[in-house]
Design a protein around this nucleic acid. Structure first.
Lengths: 334, 334
DNA sequence: GTTTGCAATGCAAACGTTTACAATCTAAGC
DNA sequence: GCTTAGATTGTAAACGTTTGCATTGCAAAC
């Protein structure tokens, strides 16, 4: 009962195992009756093709890797779902790799996936330092960046226009009349933050306003961080009456911090986030935010990976897709 | 540059490839100098062992499958993170399979994982109908159920005491003085619901109260469902002033529905959830709920899988772990 | 009744490892 | 210097498939 192989079937059907292989893969050149018998026996024996063996000879595993920094941030599961759906439809499986925002874990996984001979890698990189990734993988395994990507990459990516997003969020607050606007984000070797901050500054410039660097506070991507940073900010004598947080999780932390300081949102401090995670729209929260098409982003990333794989090792497919962010105004700012 | 193998190294080092294999795996019986040279060459050539080939001969892939119904429900990412952490520490990778609550997708994935020859499967089953799963996998691939499990299974599981959880939630509401308490959950071939509902009824019994079946409304596990069901409930002339929702997502939907009906929580309707997802504790939400040790649950499940694998095909490891639920009282009920 | 051509099948190599066993080398013991 | 044991290395089989090529069988065409 342990692991029935193609040979077992061959023996029972009195044919060579090459014929069994052909029959089971519905290849031409096998008599109808023979095929039927073989399939029947395969069924009886509860045969399951060994994808490992097949992978070895066909040099493809029908699987790819998905590297994300934080499965706990609802943004990523949403993207992952898109990827998973697309992959399944095409007959691919995905290795889930959660880096927990640790660079060495990212590297670890890249090596691992390479050893597993995945057909492609979809990665939401932690930072814009991707030399290692690019060096080890380039021209060997197709890579698609998702969510954010180093701008000088040779690889495909599907991202959102983070500068535009940062700009939209900030402009929204400016137009509401705020002239002192805080920025709360993750540490600055992340590309995401780099660009969203750029958008933030762009808006200031466009309206002829000065950026006050002391209003920019950086940490990481966790909710607690938003909470801590806003508290520190509020201690400042002249704290900003509006805050743009780099993602919704941070924004939620900010809101919590504001409330706990005895202030109100948006009365005392207006808050805008980024991502539009499901909870942002929850009536209790009603967070103004920049919406990213998360599911579609994942779906698209898979499409590109598949396209690259199909293309064979021939020419290098390179799609650079930049999606439009959308400002969604809710009650945390008005 | 495309795929350097053990043979390339052997040629360059002037040794047989068996020696290379031994050297790279740090096996005894290879001279220090030889080993050093081989490793050096391997480094230069940027050699990456082919896990597929290795898997074929060693008959293990160092990967296992994780089947969950909904990666979008924050409960599961939390569990997944525990599993991922445990797996990585032990050198295993996980195939993520999201069934989207569809039974045939679950079956599809089970077959797929079997073909991929994963070393084990951790599954949060959709329903208590697992004959197929058990039939196809039993005694071939180690299985560990997580979150909930069929009680008559031969396999290991790590779950929470759902009956107890349902009981705690309901008792809490009873003790607050409510005598008409609604139950909102998923369709009834889910084990989870079966047990939590059992706990609900148990509490009624214990306090000598009658269960009013019209106060029990079933749908699925999505937030919208909670929203829709509570709205239907509120239309009833004598709707319950307290609701136990089978999970936090449903509970959030319930709260939304209550508010939109112009009623307040907990003033008009008290709400208790289940899971304690991160957002339940958010100050805007403050959902009373039954806490599950999600991360630990995942961690434990991996431990068991690993233990089973280590054990070899010798005896059948079977651990049945039932964790204690904990009632966390917040502002959605008091 | 040959030939021709094509469909059906079998044979064997290949994919990149690991590993049992055989062969060789080295150095210690006599 | 010869034996011998132990360490080092090589040979080849195995893992379960796919697939190019050779072989066979059979029917149609001559």
């Amino acid at each position: 009962m342990i692991d029935v192989t193609i040979k077992d079937i061959a023996k029972k059907a009195n044919v060579s195992y090459a014929t069994v292989s052909r029959a089971l893969n519905n290849k031409k050149g096998v008599r109808g009756e023979t095929g039927r018998k073989i399939r029947e026996i395969a069924g009886e024996l509860n045969y399951r093709p060994n994808a490992i063996a097949r992978g070895l000879v066909k040099k493809q595993t029908h699987s790819f890797g998905l590297i994300i920094p934080d499965i706990t941030n609802p943004f990523f599961p949403e993207v992952a779902r898109g990827i998973e759906d697309g992959a399944r439809e095409a007959g691919y499986s995905i290795f889930l790799c959660n880096t927990n925002w640790e660079k060495n874990r990212e590297i670890h996984y890249i090596n691992l996936l390479a050893e597993k001979r995945v057909d492609g890698i979809i990665i939401a990189p932690i930072s814009n330092k991707v030399e290692f990734l690019e060096k080890t993988l380039n021209s060997k395994i197709p890579v698609v960046y998702v969510s954010n990507a180093p701008h000088d990459t040779q690889n495909s990516y599907v991202v959102i226009d983070n500068i535009r997003g940062g700009f939209l969020a900030t402009r929204h607050l400016i137009e509401l009349g705020y002239n002192s606007i805080g920025f709360i984000g993750a540490s600055n070797d992340s590309l995401t933050i780099d660009e969203r901050l750029k958008g933030y500054k762009l808006a200031f410039k466009k309206y002829g306003m000065e950026v006050d660097e002391s209003n920019i506070k950086l940490g990481d991507f966790k909710r607690e961080t938003g909470y801590n940073l806003i508290k520190r900010m509020i201690e400042m004598s002249n704290y900003p009456r509006a805050v743009f947080a780099e993602n919704d999780l941070l924004a939620l932390g900010v809101i919590q911090g504001v409330k706990e300081s005895g202030l109100s949102v948006p009365g005392d401090v207006a808050v805008v986030g980024f991502d539009d995670i499901p909870f942002a729209s929850f009536p209790e929260v009603q967070l103004t935010t920049i919406c990213q098409p998360k599911y579609e982003m994942g779906k698209k990333a898979v499409e590109i990976i598949l396209e690259t794989i199909e293309e064979g090792s021939g020419k290098w497919v390179c799609r650079k897709i930049i999606l439009e962010p959308e400002l969604i105004i809710r009650k945390s700012s008005h």
